[in-house]
């Protein structure tokens, strides 16, 4: 695939650090001794079979899930039960969900301006300017006054991306953003994500779209049964998987 911006990461700071992170759902050990470091501007794709804990991993980063052991440090702030810490982290981390989760009772524009107005205390006009700018960037400015129920799935997900971007986050998390879309709408969302990556956003993306990984990822991480099994640059990862389980997984999803 086209050369992804082989940008220089060696001097970049760490924005996300996970050290010895363990999580249990009841007796089930869902995250097992996770160690991970994400540098600023890095684009990471996390893949793996269902139940491997990849969604749980990124949901722990913005505290939608709690981890029981280990440290998670985001942008210098350690994640704990302290509400102030959590809110500070969530202001810098944006998230895009598999089921979009747009607010159905608000217009698209209101969806986007809700958080800037109430969390960042922006004046309404400024928030709307930012919102319209982002809507234009995801190429649906004409839908601003419609309601989410009136949009297609691909449009809704692009709005969800714009909504997360309205808060000017440093890091974007994607939880299987295209898994709930009809095939013909996947491309329009992936295009937006690729553009975002090319502009230098730090991204952590759980997805099955390997084309996307090849296009923009700096690192591909394979998780299975709660462990990070293997991680590598995309070229190496797809060409020479080292672990047996990685080979098995790649064989299953790359047969097309």
């Amino acid at each position: 695939m086209a050369a992804n911006a082989a940008h220089n990461l060696s001097n970049a700071a760490s924005v996300i650090t996970l050290r010895g992170v363990n999580k249990w759902f009841g007796q089930f050990h869902v995250l097992s001794d996770i160690n991970l470091e994400v540098k600023e501007g890095e684009r990471i794709v996390v893949c793996g079979p269902s139940g491997s804990g990849k969604s749980t991993l990124i949901r722990c980063i913005n505290r939608l899930e709690e981890h029981q052991q280990g440290d998670i440090i985001v942008d210098g702030v350690t994640l704990s039960n302290d509400v102030k810490n959590i809110e500070a982290i969530r202001r810098e981390v944006g998230m895009v969900f598999q089921s979009f989760n747009l607010f159905p009772h608000l217009t698209i524009l209101d969806n986007l301006t809700l958080a800037p107005i109430w969390v960042k205390k922006m004046p309404k006009k400024d928030a709307e300017e930012v919102a319209m700018g982002l809507l234009t960037r995801v190429r649906i400015p004409e839908q601003a006054l419609k309601y989410p129920g009136q949009l297609s799935g691909g449009q809704q997900q692009r709005v969800a991306i714009a909504r997360a971007l309205c808060m000017r986050p440093k890091i974007m998390l994607f939880d299987e953003p295209t898994s709930a879309l009809d095939p013909e709408m996947v491309k329009e969302v992936l295009d937006v994500m690729i553009e975002l990556a090319r502009e230098g956003m730090t991204m952590l993306c759980v997805t099955h779209e390997m084309g996307f990984a090849r296009a923009v990822a700096d690192r591909v991480i394979f998780m299975d049964r709660g462990e990070i099994v293997e991680q590598n640059e995309p070229e190496e990862f797809f060409a020479n998987p080292r672990n047996e389980r990685t080979k098995l997984f790649l064989g299953q999803i790359l047969h097309r």
Partner: peptide, 11 residues
């Protein structure tokens, strides 16, 4: 997902 999305936005 609604409460999660709201929380993720920092509300």
């Amino acid at each position: 997902g609604q409460s999660e999305a709201a929380a993720a936005l920092g509300l």
